[in-house]
Amino acid sequence: QIFVKTLTGKTITLEVEPSDTIENVKAKIQDKEGIPPDQQRLIFAGKQLEDGRTLSDYNIQKESTLHLVL
């Protein structure tokens, strides 16, 4: 699982696999929060994550925290 922290300070927990794409993660966030993926920007280690890449591409491991910017 990974954590996604929103600007409001809320933390969302997501069940993911390293092979999941960023697009996939955004879809999971939409399921939980109702935020359309095209409004979501995910930041990890100061980098904006691209939809077509996977979590493992960015070396995002379990218990990692991503930041969600709208």
Rank of each mutant, 00 (worst) to 15 (best):
residue 58 Y to E: 03
residue 12 I to R: 01
residue 43 I to H: 10
residue 1 Q to H: 15
residue 56 S to E: 10
residue 32 K to S: 10
residue 40 Q to E: 02
residue 6 T to W: 12
residue 56 S to R: 10
residue 3 F to D: 03
residue 19 S to E: 10
residue 14 L to Q: 00
residue 48 Q to F: 14
residue 50 E to V: 07
residue 1 Q to G: 05
residue 16 V to C: 10
residue 21 T to P: 05
residue 59 N to P: 03
residue 12 I to N: 01
residue 23 E to I: 11
residue 42 L to A: 01
residue 67 H to G: 05
residue 51 D to V: 05
residue 19 S to Q: 09
residue 63 E to V: 04
residue 3 F to A: 04
residue 57 D to Q: 08
residue 7 L to P: 15
residue 35 I to Y: 12
residue 43 I to M: 13
residue 3 F to R: 06
residue 18 P to Q: 09
residue 29 I to M: 03
residue 24 N to G: 09
residue 19 S to L: 09
residue 32 K to H: 10
residue 24 N to H: 11
residue 67 H to V: 14
residue 59 N to Q: 09
residue 65 T to E: 07
residue 6 T to N: 06
residue 43 I to W: 13
residue 15 E to T: 12
residue 51 D to N: 09
residue 60 I to K: 01
residue 40 Q to W: 06
residue 48 Q to H: 10
residue 48 Q to R: 08
residue 30 Q to V: 04
residue 14 L to P: 00
residue 8 T to L: 10
residue 5 K to H: 09
residue 16 V to Q: 02
residue 47 K to A: 10
residue 58 Y to D: 02
residue 48 Q to L: 11
residue 2 I to F: 04
residue 40 Q to L: 06
residue 49 L to T: 03
residue 50 E to R: 07
residue 59 N to E: 08
residue 27 A to T: 10
residue 37 P to Y: 12
residue 7 L to A: 15
residue 44 F to N: 02
residue 38 D to Q: 11
residue 53 R to A: 08
residue 6 T to K: 05
residue 33 E to M: 13
residue 13 T to M: 10
residue 54 T to K: 11
residue 40 Q to N: 03
residue 15 E to H: 13
residue 9 G to A: 04
residue 36 P to I: 06
residue 70 L to K: 08
residue 42 L to S: 00
residue 4 V to D: 01
residue 62 K to D: 09
residue 45 A to N: 11
residue 62 K to G: 12
residue 53 R to C: 12
residue 65 T to F: 07
residue 24 N to S: 12
residue 7 L to I: 14
residue 52 G to E: 12
residue 58 Y to V: 02
residue 46 G to Y: 05
residue 26 K to S: 01
residue 62 K to S: 14
residue 67 H to C: 14
residue 28 K to E: 03
residue 45 A to M: 14
residue 6 T to G: 06
residue 1 Q to W: 15
residue 24 N to Y: 11
residue 24 N to T: 13
residue 42 L to V: 04
residue 24 N to W: 09
residue 17 E to A: 11
residue 41 R to W: 10
residue 21 T to K: 08
residue 68 L to D: 00
residue 15 E to K: 11
residue 6 T to Q: 07
residue 8 T to S: 14
residue 63 E to L: 11
residue 62 K to Y: 10
residue 54 T to E: 04
residue 65 T to L: 09
